[in-house]
Computed example of a mutant assay.
Amino acid sequence: MNNEQPNNPLHGIKLADILEYIVEYYGWETLGEKIKINSFNSNPSIKSSLTFLRKTPWAREKVEQLYLKTKSKQNP
């Protein structure tokens, strides 16, 4: 295992995988309620959401934090 970022729980996890996981877990409607961004509420798609998240650090941070919170509930 690569030890470049040993304290980063997201190291090695692709943004696409994170987004697909939380969309599968919550669904677009609930996700749009939890994180208020247009790409989740208006014609949502993985592709459009990834484009937005890659350009918008604050939104990406919210998605990553929701992913970590959701995963921690799954694996206490």
Rank of each mutant, 00 (worst) to 15 (best):
N43S: 07
T70D: 08
E64N: 12
T51L: 08
P44V: 01
G12K: 09
P57L: 03
P6D: 04
N7K: 07
S45D: 06
A59I: 07
K69N: 09
T56H: 02
T70P: 12
S49C: 06
I18H: 02
S39R: 00
L68C: 06
T70Y: 11
F40H: 01
N38Q: 11
K71L: 15
K55N: 15
P6C: 06
K62T: 03
N8L: 10
T30V: 13
L66Y: 01
K73P: 03
R54E: 10
N38T: 13
I13N: 09
Y25W: 11
T30E: 13
G12I: 04
H11R: 13
W58T: 12
S42T: 04
I13P: 05
A16C: 05
K34V: 13
I22M: 06
N75L: 13
S49P: 00
S72N: 09
Q5I: 10
D17W: 03
Y67C: 12
I46E: 05
S48C: 06
S39E: 15
W58C: 11
Q74D: 10
L53K: 00
L50E: 01
Q74T: 09
R60G: 02
Y26P: 00
R54Q: 07
N38G: 07
E4D: 09
N75C: 14
D17Q: 10
S49T: 04
K71D: 12
K14C: 02
S42R: 05
S49N: 02
T56Q: 01
L53W: 00
T51D: 06
P6H: 05
K34Q: 14
H11I: 14
Q65P: 13
L53A: 02
L15A: 11
L10M: 07
G27K: 10
E29Y: 09
P57Q: 05
E4C: 08
S72A: 13
K36P: 03
Y26V: 07
R54L: 05
L10A: 10
F40G: 01
R54H: 06
N43P: 00
Q5A: 15
V63F: 03
R60K: 14
M1K: 15
E33R: 06
Y21A: 15
L66G: 01
L19F: 07
G32N: 08
Q74R: 05
L50I: 11
F40L: 03
L19Q: 03
I13M: 11
K55M: 03
N2H: 10
P76F: 13
K62Y: 13
D17P: 05
L68K: 02
K73M: 13
Y21K: 15
R54S: 09
D17I: 04
Q5F: 04
I37D: 00
K36D: 14
I22D: 01
L15Y: 09
K71N: 08
P44G: 04
I37A: 07
P9Q: 03
E61S: 15
P44C: 06
L19Y: 07
P76L: 10
L31A: 05
P6G: 06
Y25R: 14
S45H: 04
A59T: 11
P76K: 06
S45P: 08
G12F: 09
T30C: 11
S42C: 05
K55D: 12
Y26S: 08
N8S: 12
V63E: 00
T30H: 07
S45A: 04
I18V: 14
K62D: 03
L10S: 14
I37C: 10
